Amino acid sequence: MNRPFPPSIAFRKAWLAGFLLLAASPVRAGLTAGQLIDQVGISQADVARLQKGEIVSYSVVETGSKSLATGIAMYLKTAPARIVEVVRRGELAARDPDVTARGVVPSGAGVEAFAKFAYGRAQVDEARDLLNVRPGSGFNLSAEEIAGFAALKASLASDDDETVAEAVSRQYRSVLAARLRAYRSKGLAGMAAYERGDGDKADPAAELTDAIRASKLLGDRFPGLQKALLGYPAEMPAGAEDSFIWLNRMVQGRPTPILVHRIIHAGNDGALLLQSAFYVGHSYDVSQTLAGTVPYLDGALVFYSVRSSTDQVTGLGEALKHSIGRGQMEKEMIEKFRALKASVKG
């Protein structure tokens, strides 16, 4: 079943998850606020606005018709460590209410790491859609994964809601475990294409590769981190730590499994987070996040940029769809920054 969605909903939720992960882990940024301002292209007029405490946006290069990207920045008269403290102590109303389950996937873990991912009785319609899934844009699944759900349907002895929800949950946990295992083993090369029907496929690996390569901030200032993302599972550069998490997030009323590869570069003078959502169950294909906080004047400069790939901004009226999508993304991101500012002052 194909269900249109406002792109900004998915991206807003991706933003919140990224910011929470950032704020929970202080990391060495490796550049000054001035260098950052120049690198991302914040104008002098916007620098003046930043210093007055306003939130400003900056352009982020989009990599094609499916790409939607933007960035925002804010100056807070507090140390980066205080931003970390605010989130750690729960002072921000920052716990995403749409995340129904989450977990860290340790090295070597299998399907058991996804034990808390499940469709409940309230989501049985979603489970039934998966049981009857066909190639298309309603779900991001490979041909093999679609065949797996078809085989599951044929094997079910009962069609009651509880049986369907439990069986589909088990099957999807296997999909997530296999997707994560393939990425851990082969990186971008291990990402299976999504079947769209009529011979069409979406290539999340190519879309994520384009997003990573498009970041001049990464390429110019952190080439080792960029290389590590593109070449994973190559060794991380010194000072960088990577981990994997999974989320079950409600997007337009639909449970959405998301697999995330996170890289953090640590220190006491700031924070840098790289986050690749390399598998998303529906609505958008992939996303690439670059976020951080560095000392600035007598406080901290907080910045965040995201590139996401979605079919929802292509086709007739593409330019308008992109403009509306970016505007919605910025508006929602700004609301979160305002909440952070209020919590820091409080």
Rank of each mutant, 00 (worst) to 15 (best):
A45D: 15
E54M: 00
M250W: 00
R3S: 12
L274V: 10
G30Y: 07
H261A: 02
R184D: 04
A234C: 11
G224K: 10
G224Q: 12
P255W: 00
T78G: 06
V294I: 05
A154H: 12
A147F: 09
R221A: 04
P6K: 11
V105D: 03
V302M: 12
L229G: 10
M333Y: 05
W246C: 04
G270N: 04
G53V: 08
A10I: 01
F117M: 09
L76I: 05
I9P: 02
Q171G: 09
D161Q: 07
L21H: 01
V47S: 06
I55C: 07
M236Y: 13
L141Q: 02
S8I: 05
G224W: 12
P7L: 06
V87M: 13
E332S: 10
G315P: 02
T32Y: 09
A234R: 14
G267H: 07
M329I: 05
A93E: 15
A113H: 01
I258D: 04
G53Y: 04
V164P: 04
I263T: 09
Q39N: 01
A23H: 03
R170S: 15
E318G: 14
Q51N: 07
S43D: 06
T100R: 13
D38N: 02
D159I: 00
A300N: 01
L152V: 11
L68D: 00
F117S: 05
S142G: 11
Q44T: 13
A238V: 14
A147L: 14
F117H: 09
S155I: 11
A143P: 11
G231H: 08
V40C: 05
E162S: 13
Y304Q: 10
L230D: 01
M333A: 14
R179I: 08
V87L: 14
A277E: 07
F139Q: 04
M236F: 14
E241G: 11
V87I: 14
V105H: 02
A189M: 11
L36I: 04
A202V: 09
G90W: 03
F11W: 00
V86Y: 02
G327D: 07
